[in-house]
Simulated scan of single mutants.
Amino acid sequence: MELQRLLIWICFFFCLGLTVGGVLVFFRQKEKENLPTVRFLQYYLIMMYAFAYYVMWSDVFIRLLFPMEDKAFISKISNFLTLISTPFLLIGLIMLIVWGLRLLKKKSIPLIIMGSMLAVLLIVLPFLLDQHFDVLQHTEQLFALLIIAVVLFSMLQLVFFPIHYFKTRLKILLILILLLSAIVQLPLIFNLLNQAVWELGYIFLFFLVNTGLGVYFVYVGDFPGPKRERQKAISFEDFVEKYGITAREEEVILEIYKGKTNREIADCLFVTVQTIKDHTHRIYQKTEVRNRNQLATLLRGFENT
């Protein structure tokens, strides 16, 4: 019994670490979080984490805390907690569906309809095979079927159409991770988790595969780089306004920028050379440069000169 308790706590803390890691992966990728596909997968993971803690771990800890209670009573409590956690699961699976559809470069309405029909058929399969199928007694199996149906629906879209951010080889690995998240549910459907060790293994794999999906998608996807705001183009008029250049000084600056000498500028503006020198000295003081080369360098930083 003590060994079982130890395994439970070890598995719990591993799952807690996977949860924290999975959430931090998205919050650290600030430049990607505005992409719809990234956001929807993030919402999916958060909802599935909440569902897993609310259903799987609550069931484990209830049996751990009340080992001597009536098993039928414990089973009813477990099924009740599973049912009221339905919103977490449904919202998460809706996010997964939207994520898969947003990944597609083009969509096929017939394929979406066919995938939806197959998913619905898979969900109602227990009711078709067993007319006495009791939802309260088999809630976990029904939810496992629901997860498999949604995952297979999303996979069906990704298999037949090209997707954003992933080339062929990388896309195959993404599909395999999705497939693995469906395969993990099979032991629950076939009621193979009678032993505590197998149940803990199932819970750990659930967290591991879903976290792996998020990490793989964020770090391997070839996402567009962050959009950088274009710096506002600074014109020569802005330069004049910034440094308080007068109209005559403006004319002198333009002639200096053309590479003319003081004599050539004086002849062009019909003033003396000394006047040009005086204007140039005041320009140097206003712009905090020491010579023509520095002034020319400063002007090159301004457009439309």
Score class of each variant (00 low, 15 high):
Val55Thr: 12
Ser58Leu: 10
Asp59Asn: 11
Asp59Gln: 09
Val60Lys: 05
Val60Arg: 03
Val60Phe: 09
Phe61Glu: 02
Ile62Trp: 08
Arg63Asn: 14
Arg63Asp: 12
Leu64Lys: 06
Leu65Arg: 08
Leu65Pro: 00
Leu65Ile: 10
Leu65His: 07
Phe66Thr: 05
Pro67Gln: 06
Pro67Val: 03
Met68His: 09
Asp70Pro: 00
Phe73Asp: 00
Lys76Glu: 15
Lys76Pro: 00
Ser78Thr: 14
Asn79Ala: 15
Asn79Trp: 06
Phe80Glu: 07
Leu81Trp: 06
Leu81Arg: 11
Thr82Ile: 01
Leu83Tyr: 06
Ser85Gly: 15
Thr86Pro: 08
Thr86Gln: 04
Thr86Val: 08
Thr86Asn: 06
Pro87Thr: 04
Phe88Val: 06
Phe88Lys: 07
Phe88Ala: 08
Leu90Phe: 13
Leu90Met: 11
Leu90Gln: 01
Leu90Trp: 05
Gly92Val: 04
Gly92Ala: 08
Gly92Gln: 05
Leu93Trp: 01
Ile94Ala: 13
Ile94Gly: 03
Leu96Lys: 07
Leu96Glu: 04
Val98Ala: 05
Trp99His: 15
Trp99Cys: 14
Leu101Gln: 12
Arg102Asp: 15
Arg102Thr: 12
Arg102Met: 13
Leu104Ile: 03
Leu104Thr: 06
Leu104Tyr: 06
Leu104Gln: 14
Lys105Gly: 12
Lys105Trp: 03
Lys106His: 14
Lys106Gly: 07
Lys107Asp: 04
Ser108Thr: 05
Ser108Ala: 09
Ser108Arg: 10
Ser108Tyr: 10
Ser108Asp: 13
Ile109Thr: 13
Ile109Asp: 02
Ile109Trp: 11
Ile109Met: 12
Ile113Pro: 07
Ile113His: 11
Met114Glu: 15
Gly115Arg: 12
Gly115Val: 01
Leu118Cys: 10
Leu118Gly: 01
Val120Trp: 02
Leu121Ala: 13
Leu121Cys: 15
Leu122Asn: 08
Ile123Leu: 08
Ile123Asp: 07
Ile123Ser: 08
Ile123Trp: 06
Leu129His: 06
Asp130Thr: 05
Gln131Asn: 14
Phe133Gly: 11
Phe133Lys: 04
Phe133Ala: 10
Asp134Gln: 13
Leu136Asn: 09
Leu136Pro: 00
Gln137Cys: 00
His138Asp: 07
Thr139Gln: 10
Thr139Ile: 11
Gln141Asp: 02
Gln141Ala: 09
Leu142Glu: 02
Phe143Ser: 01
Leu145Ile: 10
Leu145Thr: 01
Leu146Asp: 02
